[in-house]
Design a protein around this nucleic acid. Structure first.
Length: 422
RNA sequence: GGAGAAAUGGCAGAGUGGUCGAAUGCGGCAGUCUUGAAAACUGUUGAGGGUCACACCUCCGGGGGUUCGAAUCCCUCUUUCUCCGCCA
């Protein structure tokens, strides 16, 4: 969430930048400022009341010590009113703080200056393309047909044992998945990211820390009995590693990577665009995640983009990079680059990676800070990106690498699969 | 799952009703010494709110209570450790 002090000092910038998301936040921003002022007033009143009551208590202690019990008892009566006052002030303060926070949770992050204004994915800005779109033979198939033809992914079996959106990978399909995971992790660790294996279920505090809670609980699977959530992305456990941490400036940057399955309810998504591997309830993803000094978080963002580029280049998949417009930008993000692979058989672009800088938006909630050279504590910047999401990369490989007599395996993956063709 | 013990600053660890935001050690930072470093010595060093700056307020696992006053007493939750049971 945004910092109140920042809102107070940059009111107009905040309102103007939020217009990029097509929202008029002026009323909310005014309300935040008013609530915060009221909150601080109450805080001061409460502090003064407590200060008075503290000093009387000290006096009482001294009087008892010197045997003046009668005088002490007179003072005791004075504290009764103070106690009532502080109790009521405290209740008011809590109510005010809750109202302020409730409002702050509803305000999305302030988009970067370079983010284009816009409503939908049509307004995203294409900033880079690479790779040739292959010319496929006449009988080229979309990946869900290929999956059936070569018996490598079984969607019906998944539906039987769990439900739609839980595919079963078989034989060379399963092996190709494992190869991709290992390949991605190897690329990420070679680039300096430390590999982590993270819990797949998280508690409420973690969901809250990365912004899935409150409000978006409907998107996560919930284990009611233990009040745990299945992670929708490794971002949740990965970022929460640093919740309530005060790191040293020398510890920065922190760069981690992890493979996890991801679970998303995707309530309300149906239709042709969710066929096959395009949208699933359970899928695999390798994530990269960084905690950065505020001065170099954009440099880090570019490094992450370059890193993903080299992977796609090695896989020889045609892709493009988009700068997301305000309307398509995630709630917590300042600036996001989406990577899309061209699916030749479906004749459409498939999103396979999303690389974002959140600046202090997550760190503020997480209380993830570092001590700067002046000894002051300061919020870190957090960033993350997929490197990469499996199903659509798999779909891209299957569709773009198909030939009349089988699907070729990208060269860099052969050491991992142990075969060069499906 | 049963029984017992514990949770204190970046870490370790003292503190059982008032002058305790908290001894001490380690670590960090600054300095002295040194060609430089190490060692030694000296000083300094928790977080949040608030203020122009002070003052002041809050925080000793979370929440609640007793008391004029709580790190300290009571209730409750969570977590950790030890023993027993179960188990990949």
């Amino acid at each position: 969430m945004l910092q109140v002090a920042f809102i107070r000092e940059h009111k107009d910038t905040v309102i103007n930048r939020l217009k990029k998301r097509n929202i008029d936040a002026s009323q909310m921003i005014e309300d935040v400022i008013t609530l915060d002022e009221e909150r601080r007033q109450l805080q001061t009143q409460l502090d003064n009341t407590l200060a008075e009551s503290n000093s009387i208590s000290k006096e009482i202690g001294l009087l008892y010590k010197s045997g003046k019990a009668a005088e002490a008892n007179v003072l005791k009566e004075k504290t009764t009113q103070l106690k009532e006052d502080s109790k009521s002030l405290n209740e008011q303060l809590n109510a005010k703080t809750d109202a302020l926070n409730h409002l702050l949770y509803q305000i999305p992050n302030v988009p970067h200056d370079s983010v284009p204004t816009g409503n939908s994915d049509e307004d995203n800005e294409e900033i880079y393309t690479e790779g040739d779109i292959p010319k496929l033979h006449d009988n080229a198939l979309p990946h869900w047909e290929l999956a059936k033809k070569y018996d490598i992914i079984d969607f019906e079996l998944g539906t039987k044992i769990t439900g739609a959106g839980f595919p079963v990978y078989k034989g060379k399909g399963a092996r190709l998945q494992r190869a991709l995971i290992a390949y991605f992790l190897d690329k990420n660790t070679a680039a300096g990211y430390t590999e982590y294996q993270l819990p797949l279920l998280v508690n409420e505090a973690s969901g809250f820390g990365t912004g899935q809670l409150p409000d978006k609980e409907g998107q996560m699977y919930h284990v009611g009995e233990d009040n745990l959530y299945l992670i929708p992305t490794a971002e949740v456990p990965g970022t929460n590693l640093f919740r309530d941490e005060l790191v040293s400036e020398n510890d920065l940057p922190i760069a981690i990577t992890g493979y996890t399955p991801c679970f998303r309810r995707e309530a309300g998504s149906y239709g042709a665009h969710v066929r096959g591997l395009n949208r699933l309830h359970q899928f695999d993803k390798v994530e990269i995640l960084r905690v950065e000094h505020p001065d170099r978080s954009y440099e880090a963002l570019n490094e992450m983009v370059d890193h993903v580029k080299t992977i796609l280049k090695e896989l020889k998949l045609p892709y493009r990079i988009l700068r997301l417009c305000g309307g398509d930008l995630g709630f917590t993000s300042v600036l996001t680059y989406d990577f899309e692979v061209f699916s030749t058989a479906q004749d459409r672009w498939l999103e396979i990676s999303s690389v974002s800088n959140f600046e202090t938006f997550q760190a503020n909630r997480l209380k993830l800070r570092f001590k700067n050279q002046d000894g002051k504590t300061q919020l870190c910047h957090t960033l993350n990106g997929s490197s990469l999401a499996l199903p659509r990369v798999l779909a891209g490989i299957l569709e773009n690498y198909q030939t009349e007599d089988g699907i070729k395996i990208p060269e860099v993956l052969i050491p991992y699969t142990g075969f060069d063709k499906i």
